[in-house]
Each structure stands twice: as structure tokens, then as C-alpha cells.
Design a protein around this nucleic acid. Sequence first.
DNA 1: GTCTATAAAGAGATAGAC
DNA 2: GTCTATCTCTTTATAGAC
Lengths: 315, 315
Amino acid sequence: MGIVERKSRQKQALRERILDAARRIVMREGFASLSMRKIADAIEYSPATLYLHFASRDEIAQALCAEGYAQLLETFVPLAQIADPAERLRALGRAYVAFGVAHPETYRLIFMEDPSYTGAALGGVAAASRAAVSGAAVMDADADADAGADAGAGAVGEASEITAAKTPAAGPPVSEKASLAPAKPDEDSGEAALHIMLCALEELKAAGRLSASMDVTVWAEAFWATLHGIVALNLTCPVFPSAPLDTVVGVALDAWLGTQNAGQPRGVTSASRARKKKSAETSVEPRVEPGTKPAIGAETNADTKPAAKPKAASA
Amino acid sequence: MGIVERKSRQKQALRERILDAARRIVMREGFASLSMRKIADAIEYSPATLYLHFASRDEIAQALCAEGYAQLLETFVPLAQIADPAERLRALGRAYVAFGVAHPETYRLIFMEDPSYTGAALGGVAAASRAAVSGAAVMDADADADAGADAGAGAVGEASEITAAKTPAAGPPVSEKASLAPAKPDEDSGEAALHIMLCALEELKAAGRLSASMDVTVWAEAFWATLHGIVALNLTCPVFPSAPLDTVVGVALDAWLGTQNAGQPRGVTSASRARKKKSAETSVEPRVEPGTKPAIGAETNADTKPAAKPKAASA
DNA sequence: GTCTATAAAGAGATAGAC
DNA sequence: GTCTATCTCTTTATAGAC
């Protein structure tokens, strides 16, 4: 029986190579210019071979999307343990923007390209959010969010392994993936990511720091829209952030979460912070260069913004 | 000389027909599937003819963008006269979202497609905004604004000229072009539209209703990003507004402009309004069906959301 | 499983006749 | 100015040899 297993492994390996190549092409040239031929060339196989592993270009795109959602979720998980819900939301917001800026083409693919891609991983999120809002008490949800549980450890530092483990398609080694659920790229990581935000919001409301009459889901969607707008404009509008992106994000967070700096991590008064914080601001997500002008943080494994325009198909 | 004029007119007419056809195709099938051949078929000319009027597909796209910006500006102009700056910003925000929802493919083309398209009409906006912030007093520009004159006929009244005036990059005296500025699609309507918002913001600050230390430009950009995010998610994310879009927009406006309903047009208290206003809400822009579930207002000349996915090029 | 070869469709853009 | 005809290039996807 070892033979079939080996073959299965080989097949799986080629599948991964295909996805790897596809991911690289998307990051380099944008999703629009991803083609079966390019993938085939990149992995030095014939185009026909790809169809033995994926039924169509679209299926590859879906797989890439799932990876993207998982990747985003990974940046969220370690932040889920921040105690203060407002501060946690701030961190999540910054991480979200940082993710979009660091992986422009991935973000584009996931959130700005095709409704069917965006919807695929978010299909049940509406239902999920409603469930969270209605029934479950504030904290019960993080039962599945084991990340936050043991995270009782230090600030952000400890949980990093958790996320590291859930890397993409860690497939074989993961054994019981249930415990590491958020890592699986083929799971609905998108919902999980939004769920983290929703939970923080619930706590915020429970703490009385959000109008009791406010519909949490609506608030969350509007908040998300703000973050998405910042990322999207940043990727699409060349003149968008005339000020450093950090500043814009800060203003937005202040608008949504109030100007209070209840949390400890930042030591600037809200008033002075609102205007020009380019210097003192320290972002929460790892590896952010505070002084960077336009980007929030981009060095790690970042998609390079394609020089070639991501148009449909130019001659 | 009448002959050359006639020929010029005919040439111009064909140019318009080309653009008309292109616009229809974009609205029906999305920009990605706009091709020279389709345009040629639509107007019953040969593809080669198109190249006598436009150097490339890209040039046609640029022209469509300019039209789109002008269209957006037109919806802004009548709102520019709303006296209270906060209320004006609310109206502008709602109009912006309504425009995006009513003309999804146009909005996509202008703000979500290619940076070069988005940047073309917004090139100088950063500089312009800075100029507005620094030098000119809040109201000074309305001297030369006759643009709103004919437009102002309708609903909101008299002051529309004010904003219309500041349309172009203010730099060279507006003189003759200013008169018809908002209508001309080939002018930088994009800047003008954003400028209207910027002015309202300046007034808001001048009225002391915005933190004096706040950088207006940053605030404006973040505010814009929120609106853009709402529209963009609405167009791209199938599950986005779980609540009526109106509600989400309302929450966002409350977050940015405070919860006060200083203006008169809406008769709901801010508290009750924030949660479920699907019924009582009356939007400011014309022709808005209050009861509509997902859309803010969509019947007039709306792009139909293409059934075919606006992907790159599917087989 | 993987290949070569190719079908079928579509794109942008141009040459040159009229 | 307009057309026909065509070049060149790209794409997804499949058939059938090996």
C-alpha cells in the first residue's frame, strides 16, 4: 500500500507546486494575468498537466483565495488575546490594513476582484455573525479560539507559534487539524477572521463602551468597510494617502473607537495623536517601520506591486 | 468653411457614438469585457474605424472615466449649497454611495480598476486640497461660479454655484472653462468633486465642530475611504450589507460626523436611527426609494450589474 | 501521468484598397 | 473615412500518443 500513498503524496506535491507558482505569478503580475500557460511554464510542465489537478483556472483562483484568507486570519489570531476590546479592535484594524498593503495582489484577489471569490470564503459569515450576536454570551465564542486561550502568555509574543503552525497547507503534519482549525487554508478562514472582530465588538458593547442600541453587526460592517476602503484606495488610487497611511488609519480608528487611549501600548495623548503621529506611533503588528512614508509594513513576504498594469489582457 | 465644420461635427458625432456604445457595454458586461470589436459591432462600423477616433482601447477607457467623474460631480453640485457643513457632508456621503450603487460598473471603472484610470482625473487633487486648506478662505471662491446657475434651478437652491466654482485646480483663473465646468467630461471633474467635500470640511473645522488640531486633508481622506469601502464592498462582497445599505451608511456618517442631527431633513433621533432605520430614513439625493432593501437608489440610468462575471477573459 | 499538438475563440492593432 | 483582410498574440481547454 505504500505505493499508492507515495503516488498520492507526489500528486499532492505537484498540486502544491502549481499553487506556489500561481501564487508567485499573482503576486508579481496580478491576478488578471494569471494563466494556465504561465503556471505550466513556471513549474516546467505542460499546460495539460494542470488540468489533472485543477479543473479550471477558476479552481486555482479559489484555492489561492482560501490561502489568502488563511493568511489574513493568521495575522489576526495573535491579536485576539489583547485584553481590552477597543485596543484589540485597533490592533486588528491596523493589522488588516497592514496585510492589505503588504500583500496587495493577494488582497486584490480576495476582496476586490470577483464577487464569487469574495463570497466563497465569506458565505456563512452573515449567519455566523448573527449567531454570535444573538445567542452566545460575550466570551463563549473563544472556546474555539484556542489561540486566545493559552495566549494568556505575554503580550503578542507567545502566540506567534500558534499562527506559525497554521501556515498554509501544512497538510500532513497537522494531524488533528481540528485543534488548529484556523490554519487550514481550505476552511472558511474568512469567516473566522471576521468572527474575531465580531467578538471584540461584542465585548466592547458588553463593556458599555458602545451604544447599547447599536446593532453590532452593522457597526462591524461599517468598520470593516472603513478599513477596506483605506486599503482599496491605497492600492488603486495613486494619490490616496497624501499623509502617511499610518496617520489615516489612526484617524479612522479614532473616529470609530473614540479618541480614548484606554490601552497601554501607546503613550501619546489622543489629541496630539490624532494629527501627526508619524513619529510616536507604534503599530501593533510585527515588523512595522514607523517612519515609513506610504506603507505600514511591507517587507515580509510582500507581494510586489506589479509594474505591469493588472489589466485584463493588454497587447 | 461650412464643409469642414460639417465634417468636424460628423467626426465628433461618431466619436460620441463610439463612447455611447462603449459605455453601454461597460455597464452591461463590465469593463473587462470591453473590446474594440464589440464597440465596432455595436455601432455597425469596422474595428479599424475606431482607431481613427481613438488611438487605443485605453484612450476610450480614459474618456469613459472622465465621463464618470463628471457624472459623479453632477450629483454633488446641487448638494454643495446645503448650508450646514455637517449636513452637507452627510448628503455628499449618501450621494456618493448612491452613485456607486446606482452605477456599479462605472464606479468600478473609475475607482476600482486601474490605478492609471483612477489617478488620471485625480492627479492634482492632493496639491489642490493642500492649497484649499492653507491659503484661500473658506468661502472666497464662489465669486466666479456661474456653473451652478442653471443647475441650481432644482431642489436645493441657490448656493450651488459656490462649489461649482472651485472645480478646477483653482490654479489658473477659472475664467471661461469654469462656467461649464461640471458638465464637461474632459475636465478634471474628479478633483472638483473631492474639492466640494474638502470645502465642507474646512467650514466644519472653521465652525469649531472639528478638532482644531485635525488635519483636514487626512480627515477627508479617511472619510472618503469609508464611503469608498462601503461602495466597494457592496459591489464585490456578496454578503456585505447584511443590514440595509442605508443603515450602514448612517452608522458610518454618525461615526464621522457625530450623532447629532442638526440638519432638518431627517426626523429620527440619532439613537433610534443608528440601529434600524430602514423605514424612516429619507436620503437626500433625488429619486431614492426609502424602502428598498439593499440599494440606496438605483433606478435612474443605472448600470445593470452584469450577470457575466467581470473577470479578465473567460472562455 | 505526462506529453505534443491543436482546436476554438478572442484580443489589439495595422496595411492598403477604395 | 471607411472598409476588408490580416497579422500577431493570447487565452482556456481537450484529444490522443506514449
